[in-house]
């Protein structure tokens, strides 16, 4: 069964068509990827799915609920979390406070609760901390819990962003180039982490990635886009041997 359905999605900035007639689905409990050369429109697709861009036309559905014309915060509340291509942490806050942000949409204390320190407010605060610590443990950055996010090593910042997204308790996790800037060991760790997210939390993962090695190892379903259009889809073997894909990445062989 598909969790995310994207149908005939189009995004136009003035005369430039960034994404054109794109359709794909993401199966529940799968690890899927969107790949494509630089500027192909991958991040634009992510931004439309998460509500940061409004599509010119087309439909996006999460678990049967339409996401078009919703605010990013509403979409997160419906069960979708994302990370950003260029880290978007809360730099001056601790790792713990960063991850606590994810629980905002799962809790509901108001100003009154906070002012009066009601019992339910204190219980909710305890729950927020508990979930945040669990997510921090899960990605393996427990020793940095009280450090400011900006003072973390780069790899740990990437894992922190994933922990923060997990704290929103999503059904679908969108990772925008999670391996960018990571070294070999960190990439291996990331692969394990993504698998554990799917296996232990039953969260469906959709990612954009450039690292073909990484994609071949964990992706079950790949959608390839170029110039905003889908040019291929299927399993890693199918896609990576596809002529159109090779052409998009390496260019066409000139016949002299």
């Amino acid at each position: 069964m598909s969790l995310l359905t994207v149908n005939q999605l189009k995004l136009q900035f003035g005369g430039l068509i960034a994404v054109n007639d794109l359709s794909f689905t993401v199966e529940k409990n799968s690890i899927s990827s969107i790949i494509g050369p630089n500027g192909a429109g991958k991040t634009s697709v992510f931004n439309m799915i998460t509500g940061f861009y409004r599509p010119t036309s087309g439909a996006i559905e999460l678990d049967g609920i339409s996401l078009v014309n919703r605010k990013p915060s509403q979409i997160t509340t419906l069960g979708m979390a994302r990370t950003f291509q260029n880290l978007r942490l809360f730099p001056n806050l601790t790792v713990l406070d960063n991850v606590k942000s994810g629980m905002h949409c799962r809790t509901k204390q108001t100003v009154w609760g906070a002012l009066l320190r009601t019992k339910s407010q204190r219980e909710e605060e305890r729950l927020i901390e508990e979930v945040a610590l669990e997510c921090i443990d899960f990605v393996g950055i427990r020793k940095y819990t009280k450090r400011a996010a900006k003072n973390l090593p780069y790899g740990a910042q990437r894992y922190l962003e994933i922990a923060r997204a997990l704290a929103t308790r999503p059904k679908l996790l969108l990772l925008d180039e999670p391996a960018a800037g990571l070294n070999y060991e960190e990439k291996q760790y990331l692969i394990q982490l993504i698998r554990r997210i799917r296996d232990e939390y039953n969260i469906t993962v959709l990612m954009i990635e450039h690292d073909m090695g990484l994609i071949k190892q964990i992706s079950e379903q790949i959608t390839v886009i170029d110039y905003g259009c889908k040019i291929a889809e299927g399993s890693p073997e199918e896609v990576l041997n596809n002529e159109k894909v090779i052409e998009a990445y390496l260019g066409k062989e000139d016949v002299i």
């Binding site: 915060s73 994302r82 809360f90 906070a114």
Partner: peptide, 27 residues
């Protein structure tokens, strides 16, 4: 007390990075 509640933290998230806060489900 507000500063140490989910409301106060949400305000600080907005100060730190508005778009990231929105992406974390903060209206």
């Amino acid at each position: 007390r507000l500063g140490h509640s989910r409301i106060g933290r949400a305000w600080v998230y907005i100060r730190e990075d508005e778009d990231a806060a929105e992406a974390m489900g903060i209206n």
